[in-house]
């Protein structure tokens, strides 16, 4: 099982390390990272493996959202199935 972590916000030092650190704490393995900076906006997408997550995905999702808010970032954790079902037949 995989999930997509998306991070959007103003670029600053340490975003990637903060987010991957939280993933590590939850025992989510980072499989793939794509990041880009448009003007000074930071956009990062991580594909993470959630099959060995040490907490329910819903708790992790809420936790990440709150972590993002503290740093003025918008963080979403969404099960990959939503993208698969919406964009693939």
């Amino acid at each position: 099982m995989k999930a997509v972590v998306s991070v959007l916000g103003k670029d600053m030092v340490g975003i990637l390390s903060d987010v991957s650190n939280e993933c590590a704490k939850a025992n989510a393995n980072v499989l793939e990272v794509t990041q880009t900076i448009i003007q000074d906006m930071f956009a990062m997408f991580m594909m993470i493996d959630i099959s060995k997550l040490n907490q329910p995905l819903s708790d992790f999702s809420v936790h990440m959202e709150e972590t993002g808010k503290k740093k003025n970032l918008v963080i979403h954790v969404m099960h990959e199935d939503i993208f698969q079902s919406m964009h693939r037949i």
């Binding site: 997509v4 998306s6 794509t34 880009t36 956009a43 997408f45 594909m47 918008v74 979403h76 969404m78 990959e80 939503i82 993208f83 698969q84 919406m86 964009h87």
Partner: peptide, 16 residues
């Protein structure tokens, strides 16, 4: 593999 544009499109639909 899901591409970045698809992820962005879905998030934008929900958030905005």
């Amino acid at each position: 593999m899901i591409n970045v544009n698809e992820i962005m499109e879905t998030i934008k639909m929900i958030d905005e």
